[in-house]
Nucleic acid binder design. Structure first.
Lengths: 152, 152
DNA sequence: TCCAATTGCTTAGCACTACTAACTATATTA
DNA sequence: TAATATAGTTAGTAGTGCTAAGCAATTGGA
Protein backbone atom coordinates (compact mmCIF):
# COMPACT_ATOMS: atom_id res chain seq x y z
CA UNK A 1 0.00 0.00 0.00
CA UNK A 2 1.40 3.40 -0.92
CA UNK A 3 1.63 6.44 1.28
CA UNK A 4 -1.33 7.90 -0.57
CA UNK A 5 -3.67 5.79 1.48
CA UNK A 6 -3.91 8.47 4.07
CA UNK A 7 -1.93 11.43 2.73
CA UNK A 8 -4.13 14.52 2.25
CA UNK A 9 -4.20 15.78 -1.32
CA UNK A 10 -2.48 18.98 -0.28
CA UNK A 11 0.65 17.11 0.75
CA UNK A 12 0.98 14.97 -2.33
CA UNK A 13 3.47 15.73 -5.08
CA UNK A 14 2.30 18.28 -7.60
CA UNK A 15 1.81 15.92 -10.56
CA UNK A 16 -0.49 13.75 -8.53
CA UNK A 17 -2.46 16.73 -7.28
CA UNK A 18 -3.02 17.88 -10.83
CA UNK A 19 -4.10 14.45 -11.95
CA UNK A 20 -6.50 14.11 -9.03
CA UNK A 21 -7.82 17.59 -9.64
CA UNK A 22 -8.62 16.63 -13.22
CA UNK A 23 -10.45 13.52 -12.13
CA UNK A 24 -12.48 15.23 -9.48
CA UNK A 25 -13.46 18.36 -11.32
CA UNK A 26 -14.16 16.23 -14.38
CA UNK A 27 -16.74 14.35 -12.40
CA UNK A 28 -18.43 17.55 -11.27
CA UNK A 29 -18.58 18.82 -14.83
CA UNK A 30 -20.11 15.58 -16.06
CA UNK A 31 -22.71 15.85 -13.34
CA UNK A 32 -23.78 19.15 -14.88
CA UNK A 33 -24.25 17.43 -18.23
CA UNK A 34 -26.29 14.74 -16.57
CA UNK A 35 -28.59 17.17 -14.79
CA UNK A 36 -29.32 18.79 -18.14
CA UNK A 37 -30.20 15.40 -19.58
CA UNK A 38 -27.07 15.20 -21.69
CA UNK A 39 -24.70 12.26 -21.78
CA UNK A 40 -21.01 13.14 -22.15
CA UNK A 41 -21.04 11.90 -25.73
CA UNK A 42 -24.00 14.08 -26.60
CA UNK A 43 -22.62 17.18 -24.95
CA UNK A 44 -19.32 16.78 -26.71
CA UNK A 45 -21.01 16.28 -30.07
CA UNK A 46 -23.13 19.39 -29.56
CA UNK A 47 -19.94 21.29 -28.74
CA UNK A 48 -18.27 20.12 -31.92
CA UNK A 49 -21.20 21.29 -34.03
CA UNK A 50 -21.62 24.52 -32.08
CA UNK A 51 -18.04 25.61 -32.53
CA UNK A 52 -17.11 24.06 -35.83
CA UNK A 53 -20.42 24.30 -37.66
CA UNK A 54 -22.29 21.63 -39.56
CA UNK A 55 -20.30 18.55 -40.43
CA UNK A 56 -20.65 15.08 -41.83
CA UNK A 57 -20.52 11.80 -39.92
CA UNK A 58 -16.85 11.13 -40.58
CA UNK A 59 -15.67 14.54 -39.39
CA UNK A 60 -17.74 14.31 -36.25
CA UNK A 61 -16.47 10.82 -35.52
CA UNK A 62 -12.87 11.98 -35.92
CA UNK A 63 -13.52 14.98 -33.66
CA UNK A 64 -15.00 12.76 -30.99
CA UNK A 65 -12.34 10.09 -31.44
CA UNK A 66 -15.00 7.53 -32.15
CA UNK A 67 -15.57 5.20 -35.09
CA UNK A 68 -18.10 6.00 -37.78
CA UNK A 69 -20.69 3.41 -36.69
CA UNK A 70 -20.75 4.87 -33.18
CA UNK A 71 -21.35 8.32 -34.61
CA UNK A 72 -24.04 7.06 -36.98
CA UNK A 73 -26.01 5.77 -34.03
CA UNK A 74 -25.34 8.76 -31.79
CA UNK A 75 -26.50 11.12 -34.53
CA UNK A 76 -29.54 9.00 -35.29
CA UNK A 77 -30.65 9.04 -31.65
CA UNK A 78 -29.92 12.72 -31.16
CA UNK A 79 -31.90 13.52 -34.32
CA UNK A 80 -34.76 11.43 -32.99
CA UNK A 81 -34.63 13.53 -29.81
CA UNK A 82 -34.69 16.81 -31.69
CA UNK A 83 -31.10 17.85 -30.99
CA UNK A 84 -29.90 17.84 -34.56
CA UNK A 85 -30.92 17.35 -38.16
CA UNK A 86 -29.62 15.12 -40.93
CA UNK A 87 -29.67 16.20 -44.56
CA UNK A 88 -28.28 14.81 -47.78
CA UNK A 89 -24.99 16.39 -48.79
CA UNK A 90 -25.63 18.15 -52.10
CA UNK A 91 -21.96 17.84 -52.99
CA UNK A 92 -21.56 14.13 -52.33
CA UNK A 93 -24.29 11.59 -52.74
CA UNK A 94 -22.75 9.38 -50.08
CA UNK A 95 -22.53 12.07 -47.45
CA UNK A 96 -24.82 13.44 -44.77
CA UNK A 97 -24.78 16.94 -43.32
CA UNK A 98 -25.46 17.17 -39.61
CA UNK A 99 -26.65 20.43 -38.04
CA UNK A 100 -27.74 21.59 -34.59
CA UNK A 101 -31.35 22.51 -33.99
CA UNK A 102 -31.97 25.91 -32.36
CA UNK A 103 -33.17 24.14 -29.21
CA UNK A 104 -29.96 22.17 -28.98
CA UNK A 105 -27.85 25.27 -29.44
CA UNK A 106 -29.71 26.97 -26.60
CA UNK A 107 -29.38 23.93 -24.37
CA UNK A 108 -25.68 23.57 -25.12
CA UNK A 109 -24.99 27.24 -24.38
CA UNK A 110 -26.78 26.96 -21.06
CA UNK A 111 -24.88 23.85 -19.99
CA UNK A 112 -21.57 25.29 -21.08
CA UNK A 113 -22.31 28.49 -19.19
CA UNK A 114 -23.11 26.51 -16.08
CA UNK A 115 -19.79 24.69 -16.27
CA UNK A 116 -17.88 27.90 -16.71
CA UNK A 117 -19.84 29.48 -13.87
CA UNK A 118 -18.91 26.63 -11.53
CA UNK A 119 -15.27 27.48 -12.00
CA UNK A 120 -15.77 31.24 -12.21
CA UNK A 121 -17.71 31.45 -8.96
CA UNK A 122 -14.94 29.63 -7.21
CA UNK A 123 -12.17 31.74 -8.68
CA UNK A 124 -14.01 34.90 -7.66
CA UNK A 125 -13.57 34.00 -4.00
CA UNK A 126 -9.79 33.72 -4.22
CA UNK A 127 -7.44 36.55 -3.45
CA UNK A 128 -5.82 38.38 -6.33
CA UNK A 129 -2.39 36.85 -5.85
CA UNK A 130 -3.83 33.37 -6.12
CA UNK A 131 -5.85 34.35 -9.17
CA UNK A 132 -2.67 35.65 -10.76
CA UNK A 133 -0.89 32.38 -10.00
CA UNK A 134 -3.74 30.45 -11.58
CA UNK A 135 -3.48 32.56 -14.68
CA UNK A 136 0.22 31.85 -15.01
CA UNK A 137 -0.25 28.18 -14.20
CA UNK A 138 -2.88 27.51 -16.84
CA UNK A 139 -1.10 29.50 -19.48
CA UNK A 140 1.63 26.87 -19.11
CA UNK A 141 -0.65 23.89 -18.62
CA UNK A 142 -2.77 24.37 -21.73
CA UNK A 143 -0.07 22.65 -23.71
CA UNK A 144 -0.24 19.62 -21.46
CA UNK A 145 -3.87 19.17 -22.35
CA UNK A 146 -2.88 19.15 -25.96
CA UNK A 147 -5.44 17.11 -27.91
CA UNK A 148 -6.34 19.53 -30.73
CA UNK A 149 -9.62 20.21 -29.00
CA UNK A 150 -12.44 18.44 -30.79
CA UNK A 151 -14.76 21.06 -29.40
CA UNK A 152 -16.48 22.21 -26.25
CA UNK B 1 -22.26 30.99 -32.51
CA UNK B 2 -20.02 32.30 -29.77
CA UNK B 3 -16.63 33.87 -30.16
CA UNK B 4 -15.08 30.61 -29.01
CA UNK B 5 -15.50 29.19 -32.47
CA UNK B 6 -12.11 30.43 -33.40
CA UNK B 7 -10.64 31.91 -30.22
CA UNK B 8 -7.44 30.12 -29.17
CA UNK B 9 -7.64 28.56 -25.74
CA UNK B 10 -4.99 30.93 -24.46
CA UNK B 11 -7.23 33.92 -25.03
CA UNK B 12 -10.34 32.52 -23.42
CA UNK B 13 -11.44 33.53 -19.96
CA UNK B 14 -9.73 31.66 -17.12
CA UNK B 15 -12.72 29.57 -16.03
CA UNK B 16 -13.17 28.20 -19.50
CA UNK B 17 -9.48 27.45 -19.84
CA UNK B 18 -9.58 25.45 -16.64
CA UNK B 19 -12.66 23.56 -17.72
CA UNK B 20 -11.15 22.77 -21.11
CA UNK B 21 -7.90 21.73 -19.46
CA UNK B 22 -9.80 19.26 -17.33
CA UNK B 23 -11.58 17.81 -20.33
CA UNK B 24 -8.49 17.44 -22.43
CA UNK B 25 -6.10 16.10 -19.84
CA UNK B 26 -8.87 13.81 -18.61
CA UNK B 27 -9.00 12.25 -22.03
CA UNK B 28 -5.27 11.69 -22.09
CA UNK B 29 -5.38 10.04 -18.69
CA UNK B 30 -8.22 7.75 -19.76
CA UNK B 31 -6.19 6.79 -22.80
CA UNK B 32 -3.51 5.50 -20.45
CA UNK B 33 -6.09 3.30 -18.72
CA UNK B 34 -7.24 2.00 -22.07
CA UNK B 35 -3.76 1.11 -23.26
CA UNK B 36 -3.28 -0.94 -20.10
CA UNK B 37 -6.52 -2.78 -20.84
CA UNK B 38 -8.40 -1.09 -18.03
CA UNK B 39 -11.78 0.57 -18.40
CA UNK B 40 -12.33 3.71 -16.30
CA UNK B 41 -14.67 1.83 -14.00
CA UNK B 42 -12.12 -0.91 -13.43
CA UNK B 43 -9.24 1.45 -12.83
CA UNK B 44 -11.25 3.44 -10.34
CA UNK B 45 -12.34 0.31 -8.50
CA UNK B 46 -8.75 -0.91 -8.31
CA UNK B 47 -7.80 2.49 -6.89
CA UNK B 48 -10.45 2.27 -4.22
CA UNK B 49 -9.23 -1.12 -3.11
CA UNK B 50 -5.58 -0.13 -3.37
CA UNK B 51 -5.91 2.91 -1.16
CA UNK B 52 -8.72 1.94 1.15
CA UNK B 53 -8.08 -1.76 1.51
CA UNK B 54 -10.48 -4.65 1.10
CA UNK B 55 -14.11 -3.71 1.16
CA UNK B 56 -17.56 -5.13 0.58
CA UNK B 57 -19.82 -4.50 -2.39
CA UNK B 58 -21.80 -1.73 -0.76
CA UNK B 59 -18.77 0.31 0.25
CA UNK B 60 -17.21 -0.03 -3.17
CA UNK B 61 -20.45 0.99 -4.84
CA UNK B 62 -20.71 4.08 -2.63
CA UNK B 63 -17.09 4.97 -3.35
CA UNK B 64 -17.64 4.68 -7.06
CA UNK B 65 -20.99 6.46 -6.89
CA UNK B 66 -22.66 3.49 -8.47
CA UNK B 67 -25.58 1.32 -7.37
CA UNK B 68 -24.99 -2.07 -5.80
CA UNK B 69 -26.10 -4.13 -8.81
CA UNK B 70 -23.60 -2.35 -11.03
CA UNK B 71 -20.84 -3.11 -8.56
CA UNK B 72 -21.93 -6.73 -8.24
CA UNK B 73 -21.44 -7.20 -11.94
CA UNK B 74 -18.22 -5.20 -12.15
CA UNK B 75 -16.72 -7.23 -9.31
CA UNK B 76 -17.92 -10.50 -10.82
CA UNK B 77 -16.26 -9.70 -14.16
CA UNK B 78 -13.06 -8.39 -12.59
CA UNK B 79 -12.83 -11.52 -10.46
CA UNK B 80 -13.33 -13.61 -13.59
CA UNK B 81 -10.41 -11.72 -15.13
CA UNK B 82 -8.16 -12.29 -12.14
CA UNK B 83 -8.09 -8.72 -10.87
CA UNK B 84 -9.73 -9.38 -7.52
CA UNK B 85 -11.09 -12.04 -5.22
CA UNK B 86 -14.42 -12.50 -3.50
CA UNK B 87 -14.70 -14.14 -0.10
CA UNK B 88 -17.48 -14.61 2.40
CA UNK B 89 -17.52 -12.00 5.16
CA UNK B 90 -16.90 -13.89 8.41
CA UNK B 91 -18.63 -11.14 10.37
CA UNK B 92 -21.82 -10.95 8.32
CA UNK B 93 -23.32 -13.87 6.50
CA UNK B 94 -24.83 -11.58 3.90
CA UNK B 95 -21.61 -9.82 3.05
CA UNK B 96 -18.75 -10.35 0.65
CA UNK B 97 -15.16 -9.20 1.08
CA UNK B 98 -13.46 -7.99 -2.08
CA UNK B 99 -9.66 -7.89 -2.32
CA UNK B 100 -7.09 -7.05 -4.98
CA UNK B 101 -4.94 -9.81 -6.42
CA UNK B 102 -1.18 -9.16 -6.43
CA UNK B 103 -1.25 -8.90 -10.22
CA UNK B 104 -3.92 -6.25 -10.07
CA UNK B 105 -2.02 -4.25 -7.48
CA UNK B 106 1.05 -4.30 -9.69
CA UNK B 107 -0.94 -3.31 -12.76
CA UNK B 108 -2.67 -0.50 -10.92
CA UNK B 109 0.57 0.90 -9.56
CA UNK B 110 2.09 0.90 -13.03
CA UNK B 111 -0.86 2.68 -14.62
CA UNK B 112 -1.04 5.22 -11.84
CA UNK B 113 2.69 5.87 -12.12
CA UNK B 114 2.33 6.42 -15.85
CA UNK B 115 -0.39 9.00 -15.31
CA UNK B 116 1.65 10.85 -12.75
CA UNK B 117 4.70 10.67 -14.99
CA UNK B 118 2.78 12.26 -17.86
CA UNK B 119 2.20 15.30 -15.72
CA UNK B 120 5.57 15.22 -13.98
CA UNK B 121 7.54 15.07 -17.23
CA UNK B 122 5.73 18.10 -18.44
CA UNK B 123 6.18 20.09 -15.25
CA UNK B 124 9.88 19.34 -15.27
CA UNK B 125 10.30 21.34 -18.45
CA UNK B 126 8.79 24.50 -17.01
CA UNK B 127 10.82 27.29 -15.45
CA UNK B 128 10.86 27.57 -11.69
CA UNK B 129 8.61 30.60 -11.51
CA UNK B 130 5.91 28.80 -13.46
CA UNK B 131 6.30 25.71 -11.29
CA UNK B 132 5.86 27.90 -8.24
CA UNK B 133 2.71 29.44 -9.70
CA UNK B 134 1.34 25.97 -10.39
CA UNK B 135 1.97 25.00 -6.80
CA UNK B 136 0.08 28.01 -5.51
CA UNK B 137 -2.71 27.54 -8.05
CA UNK B 138 -3.41 23.93 -7.19
CA UNK B 139 -3.22 24.51 -3.49
CA UNK B 140 -6.25 26.74 -4.02
CA UNK B 141 -7.94 24.61 -6.66
CA UNK B 142 -7.99 21.38 -4.70
CA UNK B 143 -11.08 22.62 -2.94
CA UNK B 144 -12.86 23.14 -6.23
CA UNK B 145 -12.41 19.50 -7.06
CA UNK B 146 -14.05 18.63 -3.79
CA UNK B 147 -15.68 15.17 -4.13
CA UNK B 148 -14.31 13.25 -1.13
CA UNK B 149 -12.08 11.26 -3.44
CA UNK B 150 -13.33 7.69 -3.87
CA UNK B 151 -9.79 6.72 -4.71
CA UNK B 152 -7.13 6.93 -7.39
C1' DT C 1 -38.42 -14.74 22.03
C1' DC C 2 -40.35 -13.84 17.81
C1' DC C 3 -41.93 -11.33 13.97
C1' DA C 4 -41.31 -7.12 11.19
C1' DA C 5 -38.22 -4.13 9.22
C1' DT C 6 -33.75 -3.32 7.52
C1' DT C 7 -29.59 -4.45 5.20
C1' DG C 8 -26.41 -6.77 1.76
C1' DC C 9 -26.35 -8.70 -2.30
C1' DT C 10 -28.02 -10.89 -6.60
C1' DT C 11 -30.80 -11.62 -10.75
C1' DA C 12 -33.27 -9.94 -14.65
C1' DG C 13 -34.11 -6.77 -17.94
C1' DC C 14 -33.57 -2.22 -20.18
C1' DA C 15 -30.66 1.76 -22.08
C1' DC C 16 -26.58 3.74 -23.85
C1' DT C 17 -22.14 3.81 -26.06
C1' DA C 18 -18.01 1.74 -27.74
C1' DC C 19 -16.03 -1.71 -30.90
C1' DT C 20 -15.22 -4.82 -35.36
C1' DA C 21 -16.84 -7.00 -39.49
C1' DA C 22 -19.37 -6.90 -43.40
C1' DC C 23 -22.29 -4.60 -46.57
C1' DT C 24 -24.39 -0.84 -49.88
C1' DA C 25 -23.90 3.07 -52.61
C1' DT C 26 -21.40 6.70 -54.56
C1' DA C 27 -17.11 8.77 -56.29
C1' DT C 28 -12.62 8.63 -58.27
C1' DT C 29 -9.03 7.13 -61.20
C1' DA C 30 -6.04 4.38 -64.04
C1' DT D 1 -15.16 1.18 -67.90
C1' DA D 2 -13.34 -1.70 -64.46
C1' DA D 3 -10.83 -1.38 -60.09
C1' DT D 4 -10.42 0.98 -56.01
C1' DA D 5 -11.39 4.21 -52.44
C1' DT D 6 -14.65 6.61 -49.55
C1' DA D 7 -19.09 7.56 -46.74
C1' DG D 8 -22.25 5.56 -44.24
C1' DT D 9 -25.18 1.77 -42.41
C1' DT D 10 -26.38 -2.67 -40.30
C1' DA D 11 -25.48 -6.50 -37.31
C1' DG D 12 -23.52 -8.45 -33.55
C1' DT D 13 -20.67 -8.18 -29.17
C1' DA D 14 -19.05 -6.05 -24.86
C1' DG D 15 -19.02 -2.98 -20.91
C1' DT D 16 -21.41 -0.11 -17.60
C1' DG D 17 -25.21 2.36 -15.75
C1' DC D 18 -30.08 2.03 -14.07
C1' DT D 19 -34.64 0.15 -11.73
C1' DA D 20 -37.48 -3.55 -10.04
C1' DA D 21 -37.90 -7.55 -7.62
C1' DG D 22 -36.43 -10.96 -4.62
C1' DC D 23 -33.55 -13.89 -1.25
C1' DA D 24 -31.07 -14.48 2.97
C1' DA D 25 -29.06 -12.70 7.10
C1' DT D 26 -29.30 -9.39 10.73
C1' DT D 27 -31.41 -6.28 13.97
C1' DG D 28 -34.68 -4.50 17.10
C1' DG D 29 -38.98 -3.61 19.39
C1' DA D 30 -43.12 -5.68 21.63
Amino acid sequence: MTSSATTPIAERPEPERIYLFVQHLGRRLRDIDARAGLTPARFSTLASLRFHGSRNIGDLAADERVKAPSMTRLVRDMARDGLLTRAADPADGRGVVIALTPNAATLFDAVRAEKIALVADYLGHLDLATQAAIKVAFAALDDLAEPPEPGS
